[in-house]
Design a protein around this nucleic acid. Sequence first.
DNA 1: CCACTTAAGCAACGCTGTTGCCAAAGTGCA
DNA 2: TGCACTTTGGCAACAGCGTTGCTTAAGTGG
Lengths: 383, 383
Amino acid sequence: MSSNDLSFAAFTGSPGANLPALRGHNAALVLGLLRAAGAEGLSRPELAARTGLTPQAVSKITARLRAEGLAAEAGRRASTGGKPATALRLVPGARHAIGLHLDRDELTAVRTDLAGEAVAVRRAPLAFEAGAEHLLATAAREVTALRADADGAPVLGVGAACPGPLDHTTGVLHRVTGAPRWDGFPLRDALAERLGLPVVLDKDTNAAALGLARDLPRGAGSFGYLHLGTGLGAGLVLGGSLYRGPRTGAGEFGHQTVQWDGPRCGCGRRGCIEALCLAAVARDDLPGAARALGVGAANLVELLDIDRVLLGGRTVLADPAPFLDGVTEALADRARTRGTGTGAPVPVALARGGPRAVADGAAELVLAPLFGTRGGAGAGGAA
Amino acid sequence: MSSNDLSFAAFTGSPGANLPALRGHNAALVLGLLRAAGAEGLSRPELAARTGLTPQAVSKITARLRAEGLAAEAGRRASTGGKPATALRLVPGARHAIGLHLDRDELTAVRTDLAGEAVAVRRAPLAFEAGAEHLLATAAREVTALRADADGAPVLGVGAACPGPLDHTTGVLHRVTGAPRWDGFPLRDALAERLGLPVVLDKDTNAAALGLARDLPRGAGSFGYLHLGTGLGAGLVLGGSLYRGPRTGAGEFGHQTVQWDGPRCGCGRRGCIEALCLAAVARDDLPGAARALGVGAANLVELLDIDRVLLGGRTVLADPAPFLDGVTEALADRARTRGTGTGAPVPVALARGGPRAVADGAAELVLAPLFGTRGGAGAGGAA
DNA sequence: CCACTTAAGCAACGCTGTTGCCAAAGTGCA
DNA sequence: TGCACTTTGGCAACAGCGTTGCTTAAGTGG
C-alpha cells in the first residue's frame, strides 16, 4: 500500500533467504549500530569489526544508506597511527514515526525521529468504552495534527498500543476488560484505513518494553518491564528481542499465584499477585504492594535468568521510591539465598520515559523493523 | 578443531551475513524441513512453497545436499495433472551424533542418526561426586564403545547434559548441588580433549527440552518441560527455540514462590514450589505434589503464553497418572477462570523418550545446528 | 492423439559480499 | 625536513548466491 521504499523487512515472512533479504539484513544491522552509537557515530572500520563484514562491504552498505539520506558523515576520528577515520552517524530526521498510546481515559500521541526521540507530543482525553467511532475520530485528529508539523520527512507509520488482550499478528482486540463490545474488533485495520498509514498494534506493556529495549546491545540482554497501573502486567525482552508469545499473551504477570491459600482474586483464583498488590495499594500500604511485586519479580528473574527489572505504570510513577526499594530488597534477598551466577543481585530501575513510556514504545513498533530488531520471536504459525 | 566439513553454522557469531552464511541458512532450512517430513519426504515444489524460494533454487540446494549424501530421492508422488514430483528425504544414517546424560548416579549414552533416533544405547553406573577422572574415564569408555559399532558414518560430535547450574557458552560447571568440588571445572573442554570430538554442554532440562522441540513446526510453538527428579527444574522452548537465558540460568522453575508464607525451603526462602512438591512426594501424597506442580505450570503458561506442558523426570515416570491428572486439572481451572485466547486449556502430556529423554536431547545439541534450529536465543554477549 | 499441466534442469543474468590494488592522509623516528 | 610505516577508503575484477527465461521430460484428460 504505502510508498515505503525501504524494503528492510529482512527475513520476514517466509524463512528462505535470498539476496534482497541478505542486503536488507546487513543494511538494517548497520543502521541499528549507527542508531545505538548516537551522535558520535561509528567509523567504517568499527562497523566492520562489529558486524564481521569486510571494510569494503561496509563502505558499499554505508554508501547506499547515505544515498537514501539515512546516514551521513560526521567529522573525523583521531588518528590511531594512520589516516583518521570518518565517523558515520544516523540522520535522525530523515524519517518519522508516530506512536499512539490508547489508554482507558487518555490518548497520548508522539511523533518521533528515527532515533526514537519524541519531537512532538499531544494528549487528549479519551473514553475507550465509548466505542469505535469516538476512538477513531480522536486518533485521526491527533495524528493529523502531529503530521502537520512534520518538516517534510516521511512518516513511516503508526504504532498503536492499548491494554490487552489482543492479537498483535492480526491486529484484532479481544475482551478488553470493562469494554466487552470491543471483542473481535479489527482495530489495526480500522486505524490504518482512517489514518491512511500502515499501523502496528500491540499491548501497552509490550510497546513499552520494546521501547526500553533500545538501550540494550544488539541481540543480547534481557529484562522484565513491570507495569502497575489499573492492573498489573509485564513486558518481556529476552535475548534482546520482545517476547510476545504465540497469541500475544506473554507477560500476563498479574495473575500468577504467589500465595495459593491467599485471598480470592477477581479472576476467580486465589493469591494472584495483582490482587495482593492492588489491595495493598488501596489501603495505602505501598511497601506491602512492593513486597508482593518483589516476590513476582524474583520468580520472573529466577525462571528466565533476566538481567534487569524495570518498573513503570501510573501507580509506580506516582510514588516510585517504595516500589524501587521493595523490589530491590526482594531481589537482593533472592541473590543472598540462591546466588545463581555471580551472586550479584539483579538491578532494579525506573523505566525511562515516565508517563510517555508506552507512547514512545508504540512508535518503536514502527521503527524496530528498520533496524533489524526482532520484535517478537514466536509469532506462532498455523499448521 | 574437528573436521566438520558441514559449515552450516549459519549466522553464528558475528551478525553480518554474507553469501556462505546465506547458503548455509537455506541449506539448513531445507534439511530441517526434510527431517521433519520423515520417511515420506517432501517434493521440490513443496520445499519451494514452504521456504519461499524459487523451485530452481530448491533444485540447486537439494542437488548439493544429495552430493553430500545428506538427502536422497525417495520415489514419486502421485501426479496432480502433470509430471509427478520426485520426493526427497533425509538420509538418516549419513551422520551420527552422541548424547551423554551424566546424572548423579548413572550415565546414559546414546548414538543417534541424523533424524535424532537412537540407534545404540548404553548405560553405566556413575558417581558424579567421585571427581573428574572417574567421570571422564567412564564417559570415554562408553563413547568409544558406541563409536565402535558405527557403520562408518561420521560422528559429528558429543552432546553432554548434566544437572546445573553451568554455563552453556563456556562449558564450565558451577556449584553442582552436593558436589562443590566441581565448581569452575571446564567439563566441556575436558571431555572434548579426552574424546577427541567436539562437545556441547548443557543442563539436563535444557537438553531434554531441545530434544522434545523436534516435534514442533519450524520456528513456532512453545512449551515448558517440567522435570521432577531429585530436584525440580524446567526447560523452556519459546517460539520454536530453546531459551537458555544469558547465563544458562533460565528454567529455574523449582524455587518460584507459590506460597509466600509457606514452609521454609532448603534455599532459605519460603514457599518454593520444589519444597512443597518434594515434601508431598516424601509423604507419598502424589496428588498433592501434582497440585503444587500445577500451580507452577499455570503461572508459567500465564506468563509465557505457552502452548503445551510436558512432564518428565524420575519421580513423574515412576507413576505418571497422578501428575498428569493434577497438572491437567490446574490448567483446566486456569482456563475456566481466565479463558485467555480460545479458552481451551493448555494440553499436558508425558514427555516423549521416558528415561532416555535427556540423553536423546543431548544428542540433539549436536544435531540442531545442522538444521538451523536455533538452540538458544540470547547467548548474551559482552560489551 | 493432441492439448495442457506440472516437474526439473541448463544457461544467462543481476546482485551480493570479497579480494586485490592503489591513492589519500595521517603518525613517528632519524 | 624527510622518509618509512600505518590506517583509511574507493575502484575494479571476481566468485557465488538465488532468479529468470527457456527447454525437455513425463504425466493427465478430452
